[in-house]
Structures are given as structure tokens and as C-alpha cells.
Design a protein around this nucleic acid. Structure first.
Length: 271
DNA sequence: AGGAAAACCTGCGTGC
DNA sequence: TGCACGCAGGTTTTCC
């Protein structure tokens, strides 16, 4: 579920409370995520102090002196900081228990998420080493994107969802970014003009930044919140609005499927 | 080798 | 009410 803004919002919501705190116990109720959760995670982390929580693409990196816990929320994962005695509900698979009485709880109904441990620099980890540049960094610019799209015959929408091309853009923000850039989602990636590539770079940046800002404005209650910490409603132009009038021109929003994912677009505003 | 499809899971809404 | 079906904001693996 979460795309870059939701992951970043989650990070900001939990980092302030947990950074510098020591872990006293790790409870894994169900280790069956995307890959098995390491069976000795409690031994690895008990007594260790959390140095920082960083983000790379849609991964959260929990940094410790002796290694990094790599966390991915998959489609349905979420993290909440709770007080120690909060009852466990269904699909709440993992708790990081801190000695200051706080508890970071991972919930993930579909279990597409991941908890992996590495002692190597995380950027060397197989899951991270091939990731594209961060879209909000200077590395992601028109020169980069032009080169990355050259020779790619696939449609531009699945292309920008490819984490080896640019990270952080998922199914919602892909449609939203292409709407803002005025580009039809089915266009072959290698047929974009220089001007369109520029608009797309700007649109991806703008959409993600606005969503992070929207998430930040809903950041409040990470302790005993309603279970949706890190999630917030997006003020979308096209996503989920099939048949509704376009907010810009009034034409009905169209929908199609690309690579078994729903795509939304405006046939009048996008070319 | 690029690109499409299947695979991993559970829950929810819809329609019969 | 019950059940089948399709769909859900991700990514790896498999298959052509």
C-alpha cells in the first residue's frame, strides 16, 4: 500500500519517539512475511540502542551500531508506537519493545512486507543495491530520466513504477504524476519529448512533496492512534475517479489496466 | 534480455 | 445470508 510519502510520513511519525531508545525485547508472533523474519531477531536487537531511522525508496532503515534492520511495509503494512500494555489484534505480527516503555508494533494483513537484518552497509544489500535515485534528490533530473527511458518500449506508467528507474512512485502517484505532466499513461517510455520528460520530473517531485506535506499535516497521534498511522487521504485528480468529471476540464476520467494495475487518466488533459 | 504474467497473502465490496 | 469473484497504494520470480 504505502508509497514513498506514506513511508516517509511513517518515518517522521516514529523517529522522534524512538531514536536513542534501547530495545529490550523483540516479539515475533508470525515470521511469515515476504521472506521469513530472522528467528534470532530478539538476540540480535535486545540491549541495542536505535541510532536513527532513515528511508531509502520505500524501505525504512533502523540503524544500530552493529547493523541495520531493513523494513518494508508491502501493500498493507503499518507501524505504530504504542504503550506497553496495548492488546494485540489480528495481523499484528511484530513488536519492538523499548526499555522506556514504548512499543513499535508492525501490522500487515497481507504479509507482503519484510523485516530483514544486515550487518553490511544497507545500500549494499541485494534489496537496495539496484534501486534508482531518490526522486527528491538532485540526482533525479531530466538528464537522468532521459537516459533511463531511452530504448524502453514499455508504457510510461509502468516505467515510472519500476524502482530501478525511479524509486518511491507507486500505483496512485504514477497516475497522478502523469496527469500533472499531461502525458497519456500508455505512451511508450522512449517516445517522450525532452519537454515532456522535464514536465514528468517536475510532476513526480511535486506530487510526492505535496503528499508528504499532506501526511505531515495529519501526523499527530502516533501513540494509540486509529491504526492508520502513516496513511492519509490524497487529494487526487484522477486516481480512483473513473467516470467522474476531470477537475480541470470536466471530461470523464478514464480507466484501464496496465500490468494488472488500475490506471486512471483524463483523455482531454493528457496526450 | 526485455517485458508480461504469475506468485506471494488477507479482507472487503459487489452481485447473484 | 452465503458464496464466488474481483479488486486492493508492492515487489520478486518465472516465463515467454
Amino acid at each position: 500500500m504505502p508509497e514513498l510519502p506514506e513511508v516517509e510520513t511513517t518515518r517522521r511519525g516514529i523517529a522522534g519517539r524512538l531514536t536513542g531508545a534501547a530495545i529490550c525485547e523483540v516479539i515475533v508472533r508470525n515470521p511469515k512475511l515476504r521472506w521469513p523474519v530472522p528467528g534470532n531477531l530478539d538476540e540480535i536487537l535486545a540491549g541495542q540502542t536505535l541510532q536513527a531511522i532513515e528511508r531509502r525508496a520505500k524501505y525504512l532503515l533502523f540503524r544500530f551500531k552493529h547493523g541495520t534492520l531493513i523494513v518494508h511495509l508491502g501493500m498493507s503494512g503499518s507501524l505504530r508506537v504504542l504503550s506497553t500494555d496495548t492488546p494485540v489484534e489480528k495481523h499484528e505480527h511484530i513488536d519492538l519493545v523499548f526499555s522506556n516503555g514504548q512499543r513499535l508494533r508492525y501490522r500487515d494483513p497481507r504479509r507482503f512486507g519484510a523485516f530483514q537484518w544486515t550487518v553490511e552497509p544497507p545500500e549494499k544489500h541485494p534489496l537496495l543495491c539496484k534501486l534508482a535515485p531518490e526522486p527528491l534528490s538532485g540526482e533525479f533530473n531530466t538528464d537522468y530520466l532521459a537516459k533511463a527511458l531511452a530504448g524502453k518500449k514499455i508504457a510510461i506508467k509502468p516505467a515510472i513504477m519500476d524502482q530501478h528507474l525511479v524509486v518511491g512512485v507507486g500505483n496512485i502517484y504514477a497516475s497522478e504524476a502523469l496527469f500533472r505532466a499531461g502525458i497519456v499513461p500508455q505512451r511508450p517510455a522512449n517516445r517522450l519529448s525532452a519537454e515532456e520528460i522535464l514536465r514528468l520530473v517536475d510532476a513526480i517531485r511535486a506530487v510526492l512533496k505535496e503528499a508528504i506535506a499532506a501526511g505531515g499535516s495529519t501526523l499527530r497521534d502516533y501513540v494509540d492512534s486509529d491504526g492508520n498511522a502513516g496513511y492519509f487521504t490524497v487529494n487526487s485528480y484522477v486516481y480512483g475517479l473513473a467516470g467522474k468529471p476531470c477537475r480541470v476540464c470536466g471530461s470523464p476520467i478514464q480507466t484501464l489496466r496496465q500490468g494488472q494495475r488500475a490506471t486512471f487518466w483524463c483523455p482531454h488533459c493528457q496526450h
